[in-house]
């Protein structure tokens, strides 16, 4: 039997699907916190989520006949649900509403690793030259320069700022190498949002979100969001760029051991570049998250 999720995790909003990709009138099935879920969209386009019984993927269903529904929110193109008692709000990404942004899902991809490991990899710049060679980094520009990390009390999120990295091809819209500035937010234990200098408009930032759906303690689905300033690329082009990056991360993530994220500071040896990861682990520890992590011995 799997461990029951801690109450914090149980009461969070969790991403479960890209709303547009949910078929109208057909059942989709998934797993959240070891719990089997069924999803569909009614004719009004609104997603409906419930605890799966004997439904199979692809079954025809009338959403109106589903009475025992789980709470649902739609935000950033995705459908979110909660197995416990959810908070009123989901973390804000105000940029998403800017009228000239191209917003898109980039696929929901299953990975054999815990959700917190995937968040931590998203925060890491040290692997760029080795894993995303000639795109997000290249040798010999391997140094992760000093950056700032804080935990915002007011917003209850980890914030890493002044992260700079020399990138051969920072985005689909990039035509030359550039030193890119990043801001990372971790506004949810299993979600992170990245802001990076936009090659097309120096005054603005491209936004990339990774929302992890913890399926089990050692398996998750990564739902990728791009909210871009790019007047020339197609959605297919932009998705392809992001999937290329994510496809490179996937085998690295799946080879991490242990698959759960250890929160004991002595469990793994951090370097200066891991400052954001250290803050993230401490934040999870302080929140009392035990799902998908190896808690610090008390």
């Amino acid at each position: 039997m799997p461990n029951a999720p801690d109450p914090i995790t149980r009461n969070l909003w969790h991403v479960v699907a890209a709303t547009d990709e949910l078929p109208l009138g057909l059942v989709e099935t998934t797993l959240l916190l070891d719990t089997r879920l069924a999803l569909t969209r009614g004719n009004d386009g609104e997603p409906v989520v419930w605890l799966r019984r004997d439904e199979e993927q692809g079954d025809e269903i009338d959403a109106g006949t589903i009475h025992d529904r789980l709470p649902v929110r739609t935000a950033y193109g995705y459908t979110w649900t909660c197995l416990g008692t959810p908070a009123d709000d989901l973390f804000p990404i105000p940029e998403f509403a800017e009228p000239d942004r191209v917003n898109m899902s980039c696929g929901s991809i299953g990975i054999h690793v815990s959700a917190p490991r995937a968040v931590e990899n998203f925060l890491d710049m040290g692997h760029f030259p080795y894993v995303h060679t000639d795109i997000l980094g290249s040798e010999p520009h391997t140094e992760v320069k000093e950056y700032d990390v804080e935990v915002s009390e007011e917003r209850d999120e980890v914030l890493a700022t002044k992260c700079r990295f020399m990138q051969p091809r920072a985005a689909k819209s990039a035509t030359t190498a550039m030193e890119v500035e990043y801001v990372y937010r971790v506004p949810h234990p299993f979600c992170s949002v990245l802001y990076k200098s936009c090659p097309e408009d120096e005054s603005r930032r491209d936004v990339i979100g990774i929302f992890l759906q913890p399926m089990t303690e050692e398996r998750c689905r990564a739902h990728l969001l791009q909210s871009m300033i790019d007047s020339t690329s197609t959605i297919t082009d932009l998705r392809r760029f992001q999937q290329t990056i994510f496809g490179q991360d996937k085998p690295i993530l799946e080879n991490q051991y242990p698959k759960k994220l250890p929160l004991d500071p002595r469990a793994e040896t951090p370097i200066r570049a891991d400052k954001s990861a250290i803050a993230y682990r401490r934040w999870l520890s302080q929140k009392g998250i035990t799902y998908g992590v190896i808690p610090q011995a008390s």
Partner: peptide
């Protein structure tokens, strides 16, 4: 010519 196989099922 990129084809959006996933998630677009192009």
């Amino acid at each position: 010519v990129p084809v959006d196989f996933f998630p677009g099922r192009e």
